[in-house]
Nucleic acid binder design. Structure first.
Lengths: 226, 226
DNA sequence: ATTAATATTAACTCAATGTTAAGCCAGTAT
DNA sequence: ATACTGGCTTAACATTGAGTTAATATTAAT
């Protein structure tokens, strides 16, 4: 299934119509909402892959809505992007705190916006690359090792790919479904406990605190301060 | 010699001046370039240890320049880092494809940038140091022999080329696919066990511990202390 | 308290790799 | 010519350990 469901949230109907029209024409499945509260409702049923949301809205603003949406495990992998005026510096910071993935500054040309959307959605399905986070750990695909505080940890293939996936988006929850699809491939079927066992082995090797279980949802890699 | 040569590439002279001033003060040897094309020229003669390059530039963008630079074997050990806006997700992905090692998101505080640079160069110097300390073994293409602790080991062609390939990037994993492509050529087809047998003969001659198997992935040449 | 989800452990399976020896071929010495 | 030589490949079989499973324990949510 290609990721292509977009939820647009803005209090200006003209903008909604314009974007909806053009994005639909591009082949995306689009829904809209006029404020934060409605956005939450729509998101819970529509399960979009991407939410583009204005910050300033009546009823419930984007920041608050974002926080709510991030509570829903089903939307763990949904990318949330804010629309924000260039100068509203504070909203950007608050937005990231609330769990936003990105922000787009207004005004923006439709063409630029579309290519941006394409890029964002592509990220979800991208092959996992070397990952450099500002944590004490990073993946070295060339050497096929994980560096932890300048110590090399070598891992078997499946464990390595699993960790690489989780680290590709720290703090982001990966569902078991996504993990299977990415590490094992869509066709191969293995038992339910297989992921658990690999997670366990990883925790044994890199420490208990890096991989966090989100019960009923999946697993995430969290950054640890030195 | 410590790795300390940095090439800065950005179309904004103010930024170049600022960074150059501060990095020079930190003891680095710094050169600058205003666009991708100039960057390639400078890189070819300056042989920097680290290139910090803006993605968006006139004349030739960072991605393209990165690809070009990666063609030059002299710059194989040069770290290439992109400067990119937080939201330009696509450029990050394309950057890795082009051979970038890392990316730094703008805006960034100078202090953070400096510590990041330090980290990047330190990582590189450690690798280089390992290679040098392991002068217990090196390839002599002229004589077509491998020197191990001042002892000449002469190897048949295939074994020699295989070892030379692995040693060309110590600690790096080479997949069977790549080994075939490099040592045998893309067209020639040989059986699955052929590589194994050559690996075995090499291990017999140079010792068991130099070539490590990464099951399901490939082989790598590892440095050995003393 | 009940239950579903996850953790843990150890045993098992099988694909990937290791090992050995024999065969083939090109170059070369007899 | 013929036989020898060393390099390379192949095939058959052995071995290994990554990956999986299954059984049981523990945990978190209601």
């Amino acid at each position: 299934m290609n990721p292509n469901k977009i939820l647009l949230v803005d209090d200006d109907e003209d903008i909604l119509d314009l974007l909806e029209y053009n994005l639909t024409k591009e082949g995306y499945s689009v829904e809209t909402a006029l404020n934060g509260r409605l956005a939450i409702e729509k998101a819970n049923t529509f399960i979009p892959d991407l939410i583009i949301m204005d910050v300033m809205m009546p009823e419930m603003d984007g920041i608050e809505a974002c926080g709510e949406i991030r509570q829903n495990p089903l939307l763990a992998n949904t990318i949330i992007t804010f629309l924000t005026a260039r100068s509203e510096d504070y909203s950007q910071i608050a937005g990231f705190d609330a769990g936003a993935d990105d922000y787009i500054t207004k005004p923006i040309k439709p063409k630029v916006l579309f290519s941006k959307i394409k890029g964002l959605l592509r990220r979800n399905s991208q092959e996992v690359k070397n990952v450099e986070s500002n944590s004490s750990m990073f993946i070295d695909r060339e050497k096929y090792v994980v560096m932890q505080n300048d110590v090399e940890i070598s891992l078997p293939k499946k464990e390595f790919e699993l960790l690489a996936l989780l680290m590709s988006r720290p703090n982001n929850v990966f569902t078991r479904e996504k993990i299977f699809a990415s590490v094992w491939g869509d066709d191969i079927v293995v038992g339910d406990r297989t992921i658990d066992v690999h997670i366990r082995k990883l925790r044994e090797k890199i420490g208990e605190d890096y991989i966090k279980t989100v019960k009923g949802v999946g697993y995430k890699f969290v950054d640890i301060e030195n």
